Amino acid sequence: MADSVPKASLYYYPPSIWCAAVLLCLEEKGYSEEEIDKKVVDLSKGENYALSFLRLNPKATVPTLVAPLEKTLSAEVESRFKALTETKTIIEFLDKSRSAFSRTNTTSSAPAPALAPATIAFTTVSNSIIDLLHSDEAHPGAARWYNARDEATLAKICPSLQAFFAAKRDAIAASLAESEKGAIQASAKTKKFWEDKSTAASEFAQLFGDGEKPESELSPEAKAKREEYFNTAKLVWETNLRNVLTRLSKEMIGPHALGDQLSLADLHLGAWLARLVTLAGGDISDKGDVAIGKLEKHIGNGFALPKDFQWTPARRDDTSEVKPVVQSKLAAFWDAVRERPSWKKVYANGLH
Protein backbone atom coordinates (compact mmCIF):
# COMPACT_ATOMS: atom_id res chain seq x y z
CA MET A 1 0.00 0.00 0.00
CA ALA A 2 1.39 3.39 -0.95
CA ASP A 3 2.61 5.61 1.88
CA SER A 4 0.29 8.40 0.68
CA VAL A 5 -2.81 6.33 1.40
CA PRO A 6 -4.04 6.85 4.98
CA LYS A 7 -4.32 3.74 7.13
CA ALA A 8 -6.09 2.95 10.35
CA SER A 9 -4.07 2.20 13.49
CA LEU A 10 -5.19 -0.43 15.97
CA TYR A 11 -3.97 0.07 19.52
CA TYR A 12 -4.25 -3.27 21.24
CA TYR A 13 -2.88 -5.62 23.89
CA PRO A 14 -2.55 -9.23 22.65
CA PRO A 15 -3.89 -10.95 25.83
CA SER A 16 -6.93 -8.65 25.97
CA ILE A 17 -10.24 -10.39 25.40
CA TRP A 18 -11.86 -7.59 23.40
CA CYS A 19 -8.70 -7.05 21.36
CA ALA A 20 -9.00 -10.73 20.44
CA ALA A 21 -12.53 -10.06 19.17
CA VAL A 22 -11.20 -7.32 16.88
CA LEU A 23 -8.34 -9.52 15.67
CA LEU A 24 -10.86 -12.26 14.86
CA CYS A 25 -12.80 -9.70 12.84
CA LEU A 26 -9.70 -8.65 10.87
CA GLU A 27 -9.07 -12.27 9.95
CA GLU A 28 -12.68 -13.07 9.06
CA LYS A 29 -12.96 -9.96 6.88
CA GLY A 30 -9.74 -10.75 5.04
CA TYR A 31 -7.75 -7.62 5.88
CA SER A 32 -4.10 -7.86 4.87
CA GLU A 33 -1.29 -7.17 7.34
CA GLU A 34 -0.43 -3.95 5.44
CA GLU A 35 -3.88 -2.39 5.70
CA ILE A 36 -3.88 -1.62 9.43
CA ASP A 37 -0.98 -0.55 11.62
CA LYS A 38 -1.00 -2.53 14.86
CA LYS A 39 0.46 -0.79 17.90
CA VAL A 40 0.81 -2.70 21.17
CA VAL A 41 -0.25 -0.92 24.36
CA ASP A 42 1.15 -3.01 27.22
CA LEU A 43 -1.52 -3.03 29.93
CA SER A 44 0.79 -5.02 32.21
CA LYS A 45 3.04 -1.94 32.32
CA GLY A 46 0.21 0.57 32.59
CA GLU A 47 0.97 2.06 29.17
CA ASN A 48 -2.73 2.74 28.63
CA TYR A 49 -2.51 5.44 31.32
CA ALA A 50 0.23 7.37 29.54
CA LEU A 51 -0.85 10.89 28.64
CA SER A 52 -0.11 10.26 24.96
CA PHE A 53 -2.60 7.38 24.88
CA LEU A 54 -5.21 9.19 26.97
CA ARG A 55 -5.30 11.87 24.28
CA LEU A 56 -6.54 9.16 21.91
CA ASN A 57 -8.81 7.42 24.40
CA PRO A 58 -9.59 9.22 27.68
CA LYS A 59 -11.03 5.97 29.06
CA ALA A 60 -7.61 4.26 28.80
CA THR A 61 -9.10 1.14 27.22
CA VAL A 62 -8.10 -1.15 24.39
CA PRO A 63 -8.88 -1.86 21.65
CA THR A 64 -8.78 1.63 20.18
CA LEU A 65 -8.94 2.13 16.43
CA VAL A 66 -7.79 5.43 14.94
CA ALA A 67 -9.32 5.47 11.46
CA PRO A 68 -9.25 7.99 8.60
CA LEU A 69 -12.51 9.74 7.86
CA GLU A 70 -14.15 8.57 4.63
CA LYS A 71 -14.03 12.01 2.99
CA THR A 72 -10.24 12.19 3.46
CA LEU A 73 -9.28 8.83 1.92
CA SER A 74 -8.04 10.43 -1.28
CA ALA A 75 -4.30 11.07 -1.56
CA GLU A 76 -5.08 14.63 -2.71
CA VAL A 77 -6.86 15.52 0.53
CA GLU A 78 -5.24 16.03 3.92
CA SER A 79 -6.15 13.04 6.05
CA ARG A 80 -8.29 13.45 9.15
CA PHE A 81 -8.79 10.73 11.72
CA LYS A 82 -11.27 9.65 14.37
CA ALA A 83 -10.66 7.40 17.37
CA LEU A 84 -13.11 4.55 17.91
CA THR A 85 -12.98 3.27 21.48
CA GLU A 86 -15.84 0.77 21.79
CA THR A 87 -15.30 -2.82 20.68
CA LYS A 88 -18.76 -3.06 19.12
CA THR A 89 -18.23 0.15 17.14
CA ILE A 90 -14.78 -0.95 15.97
CA ILE A 91 -15.99 -4.33 14.74
CA GLU A 92 -18.99 -2.81 12.95
CA PHE A 93 -16.66 -0.27 11.32
CA LEU A 94 -14.27 -2.99 10.14
CA ASP A 95 -17.17 -5.03 8.79
CA LYS A 96 -18.49 -2.11 6.73
CA SER A 97 -15.07 -0.84 5.65
CA ARG A 98 -14.13 -3.91 3.65
CA SER A 99 -16.98 -4.81 1.35
CA ALA A 100 -18.03 -4.52 -2.28
CA PHE A 101 -19.41 -1.06 -1.52
CA SER A 102 -16.58 0.42 0.57
CA ARG A 103 -13.90 2.84 -0.57
CA THR A 104 -11.15 1.11 1.39
CA ASN A 105 -7.81 0.99 -0.43
CA THR A 106 -7.53 -2.74 0.13
CA THR A 107 -4.44 -4.73 -0.80
CA SER A 108 -6.05 -8.06 -0.01
CA SER A 109 -7.71 -10.39 -2.48
CA ALA A 110 -9.31 -12.46 0.28
CA PRO A 111 -13.11 -12.68 0.44
CA ALA A 112 -14.85 -10.07 2.59
CA PRO A 113 -18.04 -11.73 3.83
CA ALA A 114 -20.68 -9.49 5.37
CA LEU A 115 -20.93 -10.24 9.09
CA ALA A 116 -23.80 -7.90 9.94
CA PRO A 117 -27.19 -9.61 10.35
CA ALA A 118 -29.34 -9.52 7.22
CA THR A 119 -32.72 -8.96 8.91
CA ILE A 120 -34.17 -6.69 11.58
CA ALA A 121 -35.07 -9.71 13.70
CA PHE A 122 -31.52 -11.10 13.58
CA THR A 123 -30.10 -7.63 14.25
CA THR A 124 -32.20 -7.45 17.41
CA VAL A 125 -30.93 -10.82 18.61
CA SER A 126 -27.34 -9.94 17.70
CA ASN A 127 -27.44 -6.63 19.57
CA SER A 128 -29.01 -8.33 22.58
CA ILE A 129 -26.21 -10.90 22.75
CA ILE A 130 -23.45 -8.33 22.23
CA ASP A 131 -24.91 -5.97 24.85
CA LEU A 132 -25.18 -8.87 27.30
CA LEU A 133 -21.53 -9.83 26.78
CA HIS A 134 -20.44 -6.24 27.43
CA SER A 135 -22.65 -5.80 30.49
CA ASP A 136 -21.32 -5.44 34.04
CA GLU A 137 -22.81 -8.85 34.83
CA ALA A 138 -20.64 -10.51 32.17
CA HIS A 139 -17.50 -8.41 32.82
CA PRO A 140 -14.51 -10.60 31.85
CA GLY A 141 -12.17 -8.52 33.99
CA ALA A 142 -14.22 -9.27 37.09
CA ALA A 143 -14.19 -12.96 36.17
CA ARG A 144 -10.40 -12.86 36.11
CA TRP A 145 -9.84 -10.75 39.20
CA TYR A 146 -12.35 -12.68 41.29
CA ASN A 147 -11.43 -16.16 40.10
CA ALA A 148 -10.90 -17.58 43.59
CA ARG A 149 -13.49 -18.71 46.10
CA ASP A 150 -11.15 -20.31 48.63
CA GLU A 151 -7.75 -19.55 50.13
CA ALA A 152 -5.84 -22.20 48.17
CA THR A 153 -7.02 -20.86 44.82
CA LEU A 154 -6.40 -17.28 45.90
CA ALA A 155 -2.81 -18.14 46.77
CA LYS A 156 -2.31 -19.54 43.25
CA ILE A 157 -3.65 -16.56 41.31
CA CYS A 158 -2.38 -13.74 43.51
CA PRO A 159 1.27 -13.44 42.29
CA SER A 160 0.37 -12.54 38.69
CA LEU A 161 -2.53 -10.30 39.68
CA GLN A 162 -0.52 -8.53 42.37
CA ALA A 163 2.19 -7.78 39.81
CA PHE A 164 -0.40 -6.54 37.31
CA PHE A 165 -2.08 -4.10 39.69
CA ALA A 166 1.21 -2.96 41.22
CA ALA A 167 2.55 -2.12 37.75
CA LYS A 168 -0.61 -0.17 36.98
CA ARG A 169 -0.34 1.71 40.28
CA ASP A 170 3.34 2.53 39.72
CA ALA A 171 2.78 3.70 36.13
CA ILE A 172 0.05 6.08 37.24
CA ALA A 173 2.19 7.32 40.12
CA ALA A 174 4.99 8.10 37.66
CA SER A 175 2.62 10.11 35.47
CA LEU A 176 1.30 12.04 38.46
CA ALA A 177 4.86 12.79 39.57
CA GLU A 178 5.82 14.06 36.11
CA SER A 179 2.73 16.23 36.09
CA GLU A 180 3.60 17.73 39.47
CA LYS A 181 7.11 18.54 38.23
CA GLY A 182 5.70 20.19 35.12
CA ALA A 183 7.37 17.68 32.81
CA ILE A 184 3.97 16.93 31.27
CA GLN A 185 0.85 19.05 31.09
CA ALA A 186 -2.19 17.17 32.37
CA SER A 187 -5.62 18.65 33.00
CA ALA A 188 -7.32 18.53 36.39
CA LYS A 189 -9.75 15.98 34.94
CA THR A 190 -6.90 13.71 33.87
CA LYS A 191 -5.21 13.99 37.26
CA LYS A 192 -8.46 13.05 38.99
CA PHE A 193 -8.81 10.08 36.62
CA TRP A 194 -5.28 8.95 37.47
CA GLU A 195 -5.89 9.32 41.20
CA ASP A 196 -9.10 7.28 41.11
CA LYS A 197 -7.49 4.50 39.07
CA SER A 198 -4.43 4.52 41.32
CA THR A 199 -6.58 4.08 44.42
CA ALA A 200 -8.40 1.10 42.92
CA ALA A 201 -5.15 -0.49 41.69
CA SER A 202 -3.51 0.00 45.09
CA GLU A 203 -6.37 -1.74 46.87
CA PHE A 204 -6.17 -4.76 44.56
CA ALA A 205 -2.37 -4.83 44.79
CA GLN A 206 -2.61 -4.91 48.58
CA LEU A 207 -5.31 -7.58 48.55
CA PHE A 208 -3.36 -9.87 46.23
CA GLY A 209 -0.12 -9.03 48.03
CA ASP A 210 -1.63 -10.66 51.12
CA GLY A 211 -3.09 -13.50 49.07
CA GLU A 212 -0.52 -16.12 50.02
CA LYS A 213 -0.83 -15.42 53.74
CA PRO A 214 -3.05 -17.69 55.83
CA GLU A 215 -6.03 -15.96 57.38
CA SER A 216 -4.48 -16.27 60.84
CA GLU A 217 -1.69 -13.87 59.81
CA LEU A 218 -3.98 -11.16 58.48
CA SER A 219 -4.92 -7.97 60.27
CA PRO A 220 -8.62 -7.49 61.08
CA GLU A 221 -8.89 -5.05 58.17
CA ALA A 222 -7.21 -7.50 55.77
CA LYS A 223 -9.49 -10.30 56.97
CA ALA A 224 -12.53 -8.16 56.22
CA LYS A 225 -11.16 -7.35 52.75
CA ARG A 226 -10.60 -11.04 52.03
CA GLU A 227 -14.09 -11.97 53.17
CA GLU A 228 -15.50 -9.23 50.96
CA TYR A 229 -13.42 -10.56 48.06
CA PHE A 230 -14.74 -14.12 48.45
CA ASN A 231 -18.33 -12.86 48.67
CA THR A 232 -17.85 -10.89 45.47
CA ALA A 233 -16.20 -13.87 43.77
CA LYS A 234 -19.22 -16.04 44.56
CA LEU A 235 -21.53 -13.36 43.21
CA VAL A 236 -19.50 -13.02 40.00
CA TRP A 237 -19.29 -16.73 39.22
CA GLU A 238 -22.24 -18.39 40.92
CA THR A 239 -24.84 -15.73 40.13
CA ASN A 240 -23.78 -13.26 37.45
CA LEU A 241 -21.95 -15.52 35.02
CA ARG A 242 -24.39 -18.34 35.63
CA ASN A 243 -27.21 -15.99 34.60
CA VAL A 244 -25.31 -14.75 31.55
CA LEU A 245 -24.56 -18.27 30.30
CA THR A 246 -28.20 -19.26 30.79
CA ARG A 247 -29.41 -16.24 28.83
CA LEU A 248 -26.92 -16.88 26.04
CA SER A 249 -28.12 -20.46 25.74
CA LYS A 250 -31.69 -19.22 25.36
CA GLU A 251 -30.98 -16.40 22.90
CA MET A 252 -28.53 -18.02 20.48
CA ILE A 253 -29.76 -20.34 17.74
CA GLY A 254 -26.76 -22.64 17.27
CA PRO A 255 -24.23 -23.62 16.29
CA HIS A 256 -23.41 -19.91 15.88
CA ALA A 257 -25.28 -17.09 17.54
CA LEU A 258 -27.67 -16.62 14.61
CA GLY A 259 -27.57 -20.09 13.10
CA ASP A 260 -25.27 -21.66 10.53
CA GLN A 261 -23.42 -18.51 9.43
CA LEU A 262 -20.80 -16.59 11.40
CA SER A 263 -21.92 -13.07 12.33
CA LEU A 264 -20.78 -10.07 14.35
CA ALA A 265 -22.09 -11.49 17.62
CA ASP A 266 -19.90 -14.58 17.25
CA LEU A 267 -16.71 -12.50 17.34
CA HIS A 268 -17.68 -11.08 20.73
CA LEU A 269 -18.97 -14.41 22.00
CA GLY A 270 -15.91 -16.34 20.87
CA ALA A 271 -13.44 -14.03 22.61
CA TRP A 272 -15.56 -13.82 25.77
CA LEU A 273 -16.07 -17.58 25.99
CA ALA A 274 -12.37 -18.23 25.38
CA ARG A 275 -11.57 -16.13 28.46
CA LEU A 276 -14.08 -17.95 30.66
CA VAL A 277 -12.96 -21.39 29.50
CA THR A 278 -9.36 -20.37 30.23
CA LEU A 279 -10.26 -19.26 33.76
CA ALA A 280 -12.11 -22.55 34.25
CA GLY A 281 -8.96 -24.51 33.40
CA GLY A 282 -9.82 -25.22 29.78
CA ASP A 283 -7.36 -25.55 26.93
CA ILE A 284 -7.38 -24.77 23.22
CA SER A 285 -7.31 -28.50 22.46
CA ASP A 286 -10.57 -29.11 24.34
CA LYS A 287 -13.59 -30.02 22.27
CA GLY A 288 -16.88 -28.31 22.95
CA ASP A 289 -18.37 -30.74 25.44
CA VAL A 290 -15.11 -30.81 27.42
CA ALA A 291 -14.56 -27.04 27.40
CA ILE A 292 -18.12 -26.20 28.42
CA GLY A 293 -18.11 -29.05 30.93
CA LYS A 294 -15.12 -27.49 32.67
CA LEU A 295 -16.88 -24.13 32.68
CA GLU A 296 -20.07 -25.61 34.12
CA LYS A 297 -18.07 -27.32 36.87
CA HIS A 298 -16.25 -24.06 37.62
CA ILE A 299 -19.56 -22.23 38.02
CA GLY A 300 -20.44 -24.88 40.58
CA ASN A 301 -23.58 -25.88 42.45
CA GLY A 302 -24.50 -28.46 39.83
CA PHE A 303 -24.86 -25.89 37.05
CA ALA A 304 -25.45 -27.43 33.62
CA LEU A 305 -26.59 -25.88 30.37
CA PRO A 306 -29.45 -27.62 28.56
CA LYS A 307 -28.38 -29.97 25.78
CA ASP A 308 -30.90 -28.61 23.33
CA PHE A 309 -28.95 -28.44 20.07
CA GLN A 310 -28.98 -31.40 17.71
CA TRP A 311 -27.02 -31.85 14.52
CA THR A 312 -26.10 -34.73 12.25
CA PRO A 313 -22.47 -35.34 11.25
CA ALA A 314 -21.63 -35.92 7.60
CA ARG A 315 -21.75 -39.57 6.53
CA ARG A 316 -18.26 -41.01 6.02
CA ASP A 317 -19.35 -43.72 3.59
CA ASP A 318 -22.48 -45.41 2.33
CA THR A 319 -22.43 -48.11 5.00
CA SER A 320 -21.65 -46.13 8.13
CA GLU A 321 -24.46 -45.33 10.53
CA VAL A 322 -24.84 -41.65 11.35
CA LYS A 323 -26.29 -40.78 14.73
CA PRO A 324 -27.43 -37.27 15.65
CA VAL A 325 -25.25 -35.37 18.10
CA VAL A 326 -27.00 -33.62 20.98
CA GLN A 327 -25.12 -31.02 23.01
CA SER A 328 -25.49 -27.58 24.53
CA LYS A 329 -25.52 -24.65 22.12
CA LEU A 330 -22.33 -23.24 23.61
CA ALA A 331 -20.56 -26.58 23.19
CA ALA A 332 -21.68 -26.68 19.55
CA PHE A 333 -20.52 -23.08 19.16
CA TRP A 334 -17.10 -23.94 20.60
CA ASP A 335 -16.71 -26.85 18.19
CA ALA A 336 -17.68 -24.60 15.27
CA VAL A 337 -15.33 -21.69 15.99
CA ARG A 338 -12.29 -23.71 17.07
CA GLU A 339 -11.98 -25.07 13.53
CA ARG A 340 -11.93 -21.66 11.87
CA PRO A 341 -8.58 -20.31 10.53
CA SER A 342 -9.20 -17.00 12.33
CA TRP A 343 -9.48 -18.78 15.69
CA LYS A 344 -6.36 -20.85 15.07
CA LYS A 345 -4.36 -17.72 14.23
CA VAL A 346 -5.56 -15.46 17.04
CA TYR A 347 -5.18 -18.24 19.62
CA ALA A 348 -2.09 -19.82 18.09
CA ASN A 349 -0.25 -19.50 21.41
CA GLY A 350 -3.16 -20.73 23.50
CA LEU A 351 -6.36 -19.34 24.96
CA HIS A 352 -6.35 -16.09 26.90
Rank of each mutant, 00 (worst) to 15 (best):
V5E: 02
A8F: 03
Y12D: 09
C19R: 02
V22N: 05
L23I: 00
L26A: 04
G30K: 05
G30T: 09
D37M: 06
D37G: 02
D37I: 12
R55E: 15
L56D: 00
P58F: 03
P58W: 01
P58I: 03
V62C: 10
P68F: 07
E70V: 12
L73C: 03
S74F: 01
A75H: 10
V77P: 03
S79G: 14
T89F: 06
D95V: 02
F101Y: 11
T104A: 14
N105R: 12
T106V: 10
A112N: 13
L115I: 09
A118K: 15
I120N: 08
A121F: 12
V125D: 09
V125S: 12
H134L: 13
D136V: 07
A138M: 02
P140W: 13
N147D: 11
R149P: 03
E151I: 11
A152I: 12
L154E: 01
K156F: 02
P159N: 13
A167R: 15
A171C: 07
A174H: 11
S175M: 15
E178H: 14
E180D: 15
K181W: 04
G182D: 11
A183D: 13
I184R: 01
I184Q: 10
Q185G: 01
A186R: 02
S187Q: 09
A188T: 13
E195T: 15
S202N: 12
A205G: 11
G211C: 05
E212C: 06
P214T: 09
E215C: 03
E215G: 04
P220N: 00
E221R: 08
K225N: 06
N231F: 02
K234P: 00
N243K: 15
V244W: 09
T246N: 06
R247H: 09
L248G: 08
S249M: 01
K250W: 01
H256P: 01
A257P: 05
Q261W: 00
L269H: 05
L269Q: 05
G270I: 03
W272P: 07
R275W: 10
V277L: 11
V277F: 12
D283Q: 10
S285A: 15
K287H: 14
K287I: 11
K294I: 04
K294A: 02
G300S: 04
G300P: 01
F303S: 00
L305M: 01
D308M: 03
Q310R: 06
P313D: 01
P313K: 04
E321S: 07
K323G: 00
Q327V: 05
L330N: 03
A331S: 15
R338T: 15
E339N: 14
E339Y: 08
P341G: 09
K345C: 03
